[in-house]
Design a protein around this nucleic acid. Structure first.
Lengths: 141, 141
DNA sequence: TTGGCTGCAAAATATTTGCAGAACA
DNA sequence: TGTTCTGCAAATATTTTGCAGCCAA
């Protein structure tokens, strides 16, 4: 399997737990949290620990194979799609969607900013309401 | 003092601790964390507790008088400037700068996104290197 | 006077770390 | 076989909460 070679060549030791994490993340667009990953992988590997999940995520982060999203103030989400892109989050249910548009050329920074910072990249958080929540009554909370 | 009236009229009880927090935040562009606020206010009110800082920040958030920034994955930062604006963060030292530009008209979303989400607002995180860090050797870590 | 606030401590939540044993390469 | 990883537990870090007493209004 080529996936195995890909990670092994980067020096990642591939245990069954790690393979299960990689399999869960592969093509996953749900932007899971560490706990989401833990719960999903636990189904096949009931003894897996959070330490292993975080350990593996840390290794994948350093390899540039996953990205950390800070769009949710409560916890980190992880995105296995490392193509530069942006996100949109539902302000009611927290669902996160992808936005594959490169706005860089439209995001010129004014001189008072470029005097102080040399810009490198950018990431946009869009906020909105998802289709499902639009059909539902607003949470009164 | 008008600041007092402003908050009192919104039902906020103004204790000396809260006034000190408000005074520290007023016009502050350093994007402090809860701990930054705690440490600063502690100078004048040595007995202040984190509970009071968080309690007050919570009240100010609900009043829309401060914004929570998620640009730093490690901890929340707070911004007393609630004018819509964006941020740029130094990838070496974490310094956060403000970007007062409205890019909304340039941020059109593609149909596959607007089919699923009704957009409301957006916030851009720019990443770069600040002047000071540019002069310094890169951290080898 | 009194309901909201403070400060203390403890709890809750998220994430990281130490270490002995397990297992991949 | 040796190094890295796992799983458990404990440690950290951040933020929240319970509660008795205090105090702004």
């Amino acid at each position: 399997m080529e996936r195995i070679e890909k990670y092994r060549s980067k020096g990642l030791k591939l245990t069954p737990q790690r393979l299960a994490i990689l399999e869960y993340l592969d093509g996953n667009t749900s932007h899971p949290t560490a706990e989401d990953i833990y719960r999903a992988v636990k189904k096949k590997h009931p003894t897996i620990s959070f330490a292993t999940v975080y350990n593996t995520l840390q290794a994948l982060l350093e390899m540039g194979e996953v990205m950390e999203l800070t769009i949710d103030p409560e916890r980190k989400h992880f995105d296995p799609n490392t193509t530069p892109h942006h996100h949109i989050v539902c302000t009611r249910c927290g669902k996160i969607g992808d936005v594959f548009v490169d706005y860089s050329s439209a995001l010129e920074l004014p001189p008072e900013v470029t005097e102080e910072f040399t810009p490198i990249s950018n990431h946009i958080d869009f906020y909105g309401v998802c289709k499902k929540c639009n059909k539902t009554k607003r949470r009164t909370k």
